[in-house]
Design a binder for these strands. Structure first.
Ligand SMILES: NC(=O)c1ccc[n+]([C@@H]2O[C@H](COP(=O)([O-])OP(=O)(O)OC[C@H]3O[C@@H](n4cnc5c(N)ncnc54)[C@H](O)[C@@H]3O)[C@@H](O)[C@H]2O)c1
Ligand SMILES: NC(=O)c1ccc[n+]([C@@H]2O[C@H](COP(=O)([O-])OP(=O)(O)OC[C@H]3O[C@@H](n4cnc5c(N)ncnc54)[C@H](O)[C@@H]3O)[C@@H](O)[C@H]2O)c1
Lengths: 231, 231
DNA sequence: CCGCCTTTGTGATTAGGCTCACAAGCGCGC
DNA sequence: GCGCGCTTGTGAGCCTAATCACAAAGGCGG
């Protein structure tokens, strides 16, 4: 029952809500659908239907048995739950290759994330215009955060500087950090850090691929032994 | 016991091995240490010591009680387990903002990942030089894959094209895909897809931040009610 | 208004991972 | 060569998440 406001949505569910959100937007905008069944949504999101239903049940938002979920209502619920009814000004520290790509990326604003300030420490970079913003010196962080109500800090500096930048973010009151540098950053418990690490992803892929290759090689070796007749 | 070759390393452990690897490299290169305790490694990697020990025990690689782990040996074991003793040529499809940043990123080669080919379909982009490589047309994928033994495909196209590009990758025999486009791609079960999705990360941050803000606001409201004396 | 068909919501079960706690093992100093 | 202190390796218990399976509920046609 949704009446017992179990205000603990499992982490795993939170991580899937954005995927449902995207699928629902796709349905609503491109296919003009009004309702969706857990089965359909599961296909779009690449998960199974029971998981969709359980996840949605945590929102307390109701579907209609025999029919499915009202897309508009669900969109509203998920958007609300994720806090996307307000917008979230974000700052990027480190305006190099990656920082530039992020700064000029249009996909963020779609969900209320706006990059409102860019910071670097290199004199060559400070003052430059990137994606419509003038790069500021990291020393001016506090001022910008106060003026613009920045709530998310994005680290796109080399790994060596990541911890330092994180601390600066924390000092000015930022509670949400997205870290692209391949390094562990330590922050107080009330600050949330998420990391995006391409090298790790590649290494995980490498692990699984190597494993299946190894199996294939072993099998091949066996096959040769069983049929020990060279052509 | 390592004798029972339990050849199933938990997924969660696989995901942490690259972090240990990085920490160990740091120790070896910058601090010249010879051994490391699970406690130290845990601090560097940002996890707890028991987890480190359990993770390492899956490798069957031994530490020495009372001393710790031999760093060189551990490096070798993890590198081997992750399949990083060979190198993994990778191709990027979609040479836009993100594709360019990735193509010119030097961090990949450190671990044996080399970007050896870039693909696009836009006439303006095909033929251009980016990060020392000439961008090819996606139609030439098969040839390049065969010549260069490409084993990893990176999708950096707009979401609309992601499924199509994934299928092309699969057709030419690629078994590992890293997807940066915000869309679900379906592939056969023997192909491994990992996604990197910045919007999702931001939305998760938004969820938790919104939640704590909501709590703070509620507390504030209560405070005002309890002390109903306006200044 | 009744019964059938569809699809939800959720209790129960299973699986996977995390943490704790401690015996076992090792080196070192005496 | 012996004991002490340190650190590993791992069983046990706990917690979170995934999956299953089905009763409950709504819509619709007749
Ligand atoms: N480029 C990629 O595709 C890519 C891919 C994966 C990971 N990364 C990671 O992202 C980070 C940035 O990569 P990049 O290629 O953009 O590097 P880059 O060297 O091109 O840019 C780094 C920028 O950060 C600035 N910087 C350095 N210290 C700073 C500090 N203390 N405060 C503010 N700015 C500072 C530098 O002046 C520079 O402009 C790195 O940690 C890298 O490992 C990049
Ligand atoms: N730029 C960023 O910082 C950023 C951040 C997060 C996610 N992304 C995602 O990464 C992807 C790329 O982003 P971007 O900013 O580089 O976009 P972009 O528009 O700058 O570049 C996309 C490139 O892909 C090419 N392309 C289109 N269809 C193709 C196909 N079928 N085969 C090969 N190439 C094709 C285009 O010609 C273009 O060069 C998008 O899906 C985007 O949502 C980008």
């Amino acid at each position: 029952m949704a009446l017992m406001r179990t205000r603990t949505i499992p982490e795993a569910t939170v991580a899937r809500l954005p995927i449902y959100l995207r699928s629902l937007l796709d349905l609503a905008e491109n296919r003009g659908a009004m309702t969706v069944s857990s089965e359909q949504l599961a296909n779009l999101a690449g998960v199974n239907a029971a998981k969709v239903r359980k996840d949605l049940s945590y929102l307390g938002s109701y579907g209609t048995r025999g029919v499915g979920y009202d897309i508009e209502y669900l969109l509203y619920q998920i958007t609300r739950e994720l806090g996307l009814t307000q917008d979230w000004p974000a700052a990027i520290a480190g305006v190099g290759n990656l920082g530039r790509a992020l700064a000029s990326y249009k996909g963020f604003s779609e969900r209320g994330f706006r990059i409102t300030a860019l910071f670097d420490i290199l004199d060559d970079v400070v003052g430059e215009e990137v994606g419509g913003l003038i790069v500021k010196h990291l020393d001016d962080l506090k001022e910008a955060v106060n003026e613009q109500g920045i709530s998310i800090g994005i680290i796109a500096t080399p790994p060596m500087s990541a911890q330092e930048v994180a601390e600066r973010f924390v000092d000015v009151g930022i509670k949400s950090i997205l870290n692209f540098a391949p390094s562990v950053v330590n922050v107080p418990p009330d600050v949330n850090v998420r990391k995006v690490d391409l090298s790790i992803e590649l290494q995980i892929l490498s692990f699984y691929q190597q494993r299946t290759q190894a199996i294939a090689t072993a099998r091949e070796a066996n096959r040769r032994l069983n049929i020990p007749r060279p052509l």
